[in-house]
């Protein structure tokens, strides 16, 4: 499995690097082709990969926190509330602080959902989903309202709702990479604790895991990952949900496998979907990447659901 993932990641990267709106012969590049490759394509492919990794990892962490396989940045409403924060920053003309606003929005949204959904220290899955959906809807409505107030079509606001990697720069890549490193390293020592967190809280804490502290840490790490992803690439749904699911169905259930695999799987998936988004149309035209993630991801996920209902059933 490890080998398959590494191969998928490498393959996705090479494919994403070598194809695009402009044909580039990697072996003998002209000046212009070199510029395209290093100024445009490479930063973009990296951003796609990093955002995919961040979203998949945050999805896994959300699933541990919420003890629910349906949790991810999308269903918990964190994406939408992050986007709301980001749009607020745009409205106030505070573009440089945008990631901060996205983070604040994301954490506020997550906290709200968590508080609503937890009862006596247990997260109620249905309540969580409902609260997440309500929050998403509310945040989207607020964004639409702000859009309406500012003008009919404010490009940067629309961008948050659609998602995409066009605005990739090496600096963003670097920052997101750092964020992923920090989050990943902060939970890397907790693999065994994460596995124990899959038991009920009583069992987990009597086994010697400080459930509350661990959960808060995961919470923050997941919100951090989501907020920066949203800050740089807008709302991209589904990745945090399907990547961990697919990996679990591939029998990677222990945290020590699941977490690194999510990073690799998310990155490979996102690079591949972005590749499709930017090459499927003629003449250098592009599709919003969310269209691809949702359609491909959705269909594949449906296939898994039907094909392997039994395993999913045993999840809960």
């Amino acid at each position: 499995m490890r080998f398959i993932l590494a191969a998928a990641l490498a393959l996705a990267f090479i494919a994403a690097i070598s194809a695009g709106a402009v044909k580039i012969d990697l072996l003998s590049m002209s000046e212009m082709e070199r510029n395209i490759l290093f100024d445009v394509r490479l930063p973009r492919v990296l951003l796609a990969g990093l955002v995919g990794a961040a979203l998949a990892l945050s999805g896994v962490l959300f699933q541990y926190v919420m003890k629910n396989p349906l949790a991810d940045s999308f269903t918990t409403g964190v994406s939408a509330s992050s986007a709301m924060g980001a749009v607020t920053a745009i409205m106030l003309g505070l573009m440089p602080y945008l990631p901060l606003f996205a983070l604040a929005g994301g954490i506020a949204g997550l906290y709200l959902v968590y508080r609503i959904a937890s009862y006596r220290g247990r997260i109620q899955p249905i309540t969580m989903l409902l609260a997440g959906i309500v929050l998403s809807t509310f945040a989207s409505a607020t964004i639409s309202f702000m859009k309406f107030l500012s003008d009919d079509a404010v490009s940067s606001i629309i961008f948050w709702l659609m998602g995409g990697f066009q605005a990739a720069t090496p600096l963003k890549d670097l920052i997101l990479f750092a964020v992923i490193c920090v989050s990943f390293l902060s939970v890397r020592g907790d693999y065994l604790r994460l596995d124990i967190l899959c038991f009920d809280d009583t069992t987990a804490s009597s086994t010697g895991v400080d459930v509350n502290r661990l959960r808060k840490k995961l919470f923050f790490a997941a919100a951090l990952l989501t907020s920066f992803s949203v800050g740089y690439a807008g709302i991209i749904g589904f990745v945090g949900l399907i990547i961990p699911h697919i990996l679990r169905l591939g029998n990677l259930v222990k945290a020590s496998y699941l977490l690194p695999a999510s990073l690799a799987g998310g990155a490979a998936f996102m690079m591949a979907t972005d590749l499709i988004a930017r090459t499927i149309l003629q003449g250098g035209q592009e599709l919003p990447v969310g269209v691809i993630t949702s359609s491909i991801g959705g269909v594949f996920f449906l296939y898994l659901l039907i094909k392997r209902r039994k395993e999913l059933f045993y999840f809960n």
Binding site: A21, V22, I36, V40, R41, R278, G283, G284, E286
Partner: peptide, 19 residues
């Protein structure tokens, strides 16, 4: 930009290529 539409979302790569 030779695209038979009013507006088109295109790749920044394309811009560099079109020079």
């Amino acid at each position: 930009v030779k695209i038979d539409r009013k507006h088109a979302v295109i790749s920044t790569e394309k811009v560099l290529q079109l020079r």
